[in-house]
């Protein structure tokens, strides 16, 4: 099993005729994802890897009903493209672009909340349920990095995710569903919002959070555990422990401001809620093992 996307999920790719859109559509198909249509205004009638292209999402879904959309769309057109997918009735949307204007993101997230839709991203590699479905860009073919399994993963990062999932595989585990919420200041979906789904997924046995300094998403995870919304083992790695306060060093969202967002606060909150927190990627495997051992003895 998995959350968000599985082998049944019918996917529309917005921006499929672009370079990255075409390249990653090929990989999505190769991994077994059900890509049913592509959308690029002005290119209806063409095909990419035998997948038909339509002018609009509505025209695509009229011919090929779909549950999810993934956007290979530049940041300045993202808001429009997300609204178009929502207008066509799609309620699971993954937007990959890095550089979406901040105030656009506030409006997109507000709309998604009101329509009870899940919009994931931006500035992310996307979502993957290894061996089942993929909406985005992951080197799933590197066996020491991505393997199907029972660990649900949520991350704010791309390259770091490859680094950490390779440690998960090294420890003998694999991934059920990985959700990249992205590295922006306003992630369109937040860590804690997926925890109930991971809780209900019989094949997710634990969740791994790859967090970093800045924002309050890790604190919200701690609150969800405290409130009993998530009861499986949870391990986190949080980067940026030694980053100087007030300096934006990596992602747009990775900055300590307004007295919130320090790694210390996040670690304290998670540990107080019963989660285990790694200080380096290589410690993740051991912490997962310990979490499972403890869960067994209880």
């Amino acid at each position: 099993m998995s959350i968000f996307a599985n082998q049944e999920t019918r996917i529309v790719v917005q921006g499929m005729t672009g370079k990255e859109g075409g390249f990653w559509t090929r990989h999505m198909l190769d991994m077994g994802a059900r890509v049913v249509a592509g959308v690029t205004p002005g290119k209806e009638g063409q095909t990419v890897h035998d997948v038909p292209i339509f002018h609009s999402v509505r025209r695509a879904t009229a011919a090929h009903p779909a549950d999810a959309a993934v956007l290979f769309v530049p940041p300045r057109f993202t808001r429009d493209a997300v609204y178009e997918a929502l207008d066509a009735g799609i309620r699971k949307i993954v937007t990959l672009a890095d550089g979406i204007p901040l105030q656009d993101q506030v409006q997109i997230r507000r709309t998604a909340l009101e329509m009870q839709a899940r919009v994931v991203g931006g500035n992310t590699s996307g979502v993957i349920s290894p061996g089942k479905s993929m909406l985005g860009m992951f080197p799933y073919w590197i066996e020491r990095v991505y393997k199907p399994g029972s660990i649900g993963v949520m991350t704010r990062s791309g390259s770091l995710t490859n680094e950490v999932t390779s440690m998960v595989v090294r420890a003998g585990y694999g991934v059920s569903t990985l959700i990249g919420v992205g590295g922006d200041q306003v992630p369109l979906s937040r860590f804690a919002e997926f925890l109930p789904e991971y809780q209900n997924d019989p094949h997710t046995e634990a969740v791994l959070i790859i967090g970093e300094l800045g924002g309050t998403m890790e604190e919200e995870v701690a609150a969800a555990i405290r409130d009993g919304l998530f009861r499986k083992p949870l391990v986190a790695f949080i980067g940026g422990r030694t980053a100087p306060a007030g300096t934006r060093m990596g992602h747009a969202g990775a900055i300590v401001t307004g007295g919130t967002g320090s790694v210390r606060d996040k670690v304290d909150a998670l540990e107080a809620a019963g989660a285990r927190v790694a200080d380096r990627p290589s410690a993740v495997g051991t912490l997962l093992q310990r979490a499972f051992q403890e869960a067994e003895t209880q």
């Binding site: 991350t155 704010r156 990062s157 791309g158 390259s159 770091l160 995710t161 680094e163 590295g183 790859i210 970093e212 300094l213 980067g239 940026g240 422990r241 030694t242 980053a243 060093m249 990596g250 992602h251 990775a254 200080d279 380096r280 990627p281």
Partner: peptide, 16 residues
């Protein structure tokens, strides 16, 4: 480094 999260992590590892 390539990747903001990875670069931040390497920054930590050097300091650790």
């Amino acid at each position: 480094c390539a990747g903001a999260g990875l670069a931040t992590t390497v920054f930590d590892l050097v300091n650790f």
